[in-house]
Design a protein around this nucleic acid. Structure first.
Length: 184
DNA sequence: AAGACGGGGAG
DNA sequence: CTCCCAGTCTT
């Protein structure tokens, strides 16, 4: 949850050092729940979107108060926790519990849009066809590794700009095939 | 359904 | 200088 909070609209290489020092300072959910707000801000100040900082303490406190420090394994319940939206809820259910649950982030949405030829534009993450295809995609026995694989794949091959279509292992099954890629 | 938030790195 | 990034919250 800590990692996913920090990664919201923020690049992974920007988060890494902050995350490491953060979890060293707050080694369990109870210490985070009791932390001072300005103390937490020292770590998150250079990540941008500052109102995110309040989520760390609020979420930790919420989980202590309502679930005695144990994360619920349910999307609806997870989403009631401050700072946790549909993405983080899905990430926790897959990465932590390997449950058969879907995850949609901007990268997975882009991959689905291309692979299935949906040709959606704008904030495609929020659109129904993307969600539905993601649910099909994550109907799988090992969603934790599927998520990690998708994140790596979309970072290295099915990139936002200049995707590596010619060397892509999914090229023959992709709606784009070997045609020249128009920017999506 | 659309706008705001934000520092930091890539082009 | 402009655009975008492992989204969520608020109209």
């Amino acid at each position: 949850m800590i990692a996913e909070f920090m990664l919201q609209r923020t690049k992974a290489n920007q988060v890494e050092s902050v995350y490491k020092s953060f979890i060293k300072q707050y080694q369990d959910i109870n210490s985070l729940a009791k932390a001072r707000a300005h103390s937490i801000q020292k770590y998150t100040i250079n990540l941008g979107i500052h109102w995110r900082a309040t989520h760390f303490k609020e979420a930790a406190k919420y989980i202590m108060d309502n679930y005695d420090g144990q994360f619920p394994e349910d999307r609806t319940l997870l989403r009631k926790i401050p700072g946790i939206g549909d993405y983080v809820a899905g990430a926790i259910l897959t990465v932590c519990f390997n449950r058969p649950e879907y995850v949609v982030d901007s990268n997975i949405a882009r991959f689905i849009n291309r692979f299935y030829g949906l040709q959606l534009t704008g904030e495609i993450r929020r659109k129904k066809p993307i969600i539905e295809k993601a649910q099909e995609l994550f109907d799988y026995s090992d969603t934790r590794n599927l998520l990690f694989a998708l994140l790596d794949f979309t970072a290295l091959v099915c990139k936002p700009q200049k995707p590596e279509c010619t060397s892509c292992i999914l090229n023959q099954d992709c709606s784009l095939k070997s045609k020249y890629i128009t920017p999506l």
